[in-house]
Design a protein around this nucleic acid. Structure first.
Length: 260
DNA sequence: AAACAAACCTGTGCGC
DNA sequence: TGCGCACAGGTTTGTT
């Protein structure tokens, strides 16, 4: 923060598909980063120009800071040279991620999905009533509801599974069948699992794609009770085995014994 | 309204 | 060693 952008290159147009490489280069060049914010999985960096940069990492994106002169790794699609010589890299092998320079006053038209994000359990006040308001009225299964970014912002596939396990609720359990006590557990587990994962720097899987700005991975993968543990004994109840199903098109893991 | 499939990409791990 | 296949942290779009 507080650094001015001196040079920008866009090495792969797909990263700029929402706008254009020129829009990213022109919008960033000469601007100073004021702040780093997050809402759901969207990273937003307000600039002194009045515009802001949005970065979404999707499945394999990384935002990395590098010293002056460092060689960019493969799949570096945006390079931002700062006034102290350091560089900010957007790296993304699968190219699902994107970078957008936008006008926050026009976010509804330029980034409608950002404007439509639901309550953020970490960034917003998030009481039990907020959880119930977000998903309580639905007749659908809990897992897809937790993943719906317009209802609750920020929960991904790993943490949906871990949260539901912690709350002792099956991922295919209908939201309209929950009792008061289950809503209390689900709220409590959402808060606790997300905060514990953040404290440990998130979950870095085998390919070590998920890293912080300095390239360091997290350690929460060591705490996973269900995600990626299909066929193994349930570490919570010691009786069931972890099952893998597909829910909402996503790989889903749970214990059939201690989750109901 | 909800469930499902496909699409967008590249890389890795596995069985054979 | 090499090949083909399944699968991967997300989201959108289109179809039942």
């Amino acid at each position: 923060m507080g650094h001015r952008v001196e040079h920008v290159t866009v090495g792969r147009d797909r990263v700029a598909r929402r706008t254009s490489p020129e829009a990213i280069i022109d919008g960033l060049s000469g601007a100073t980063f004021l702040e780093a914010r997050r809402r759901g999985k969207y990273l937003v960096f307000p600039l002194d120009s009045g515009e802001a940069v949005m970065v979404h990492l999707r499945m394999s994106g990384q935002l990395l800071v590098a010293e002056a002169g460092a060689a960019a790794p493969p799949h570096t699609h945006v390079t931002i040279g700062l006034d102290d010589g350091r560089q900010l890299w957007f790296v993304d092998p699968r190219t699902f991620g994107e970078v957008v320079v936008f006008d926050p006053a026009a976010v509804e038209s330029t980034l409608p999905e950002l404007a439509a994000l639901g309550v953020d359990p970490i960034a917003d006040r998030f009481e039990r009533r907020d959880l119930v308001a977000a998903i309580g009225g639905s007749r659908g299964a809990l897992k897809p509801l937790l993943l719906d970014q317009r209802r609750i912002a920020g929960i991904g596939n790993i943490y949906a599974d871990e949260i539901l396990h912690d709350a002792r609720l099956r991922p295919d359990r209908r939201a309209d069948s929950l009792r008061r006590s289950s809503w209390a557990r689900l709220h409590d587990s959402t808060d606790r699992i997300l905060r514990a994962a953040i404290r440990q720097g998130g979950s870095s899987l085998g390919d070590a794609q998920y890293v912080d700005l300095m390239g360091h991975g997290g350690s929460y993968q060591a705490e996973h009770r269900v995600y990626g543990r299909a066929g193994k004994r349930c570490a919570t109840c010691g009786r069931g085995w972890i099952r893998r199903i597909v829910s909402g098109g996503r790989s889903t893991h749970f214990c059939g014994v201690c989750q109901r």
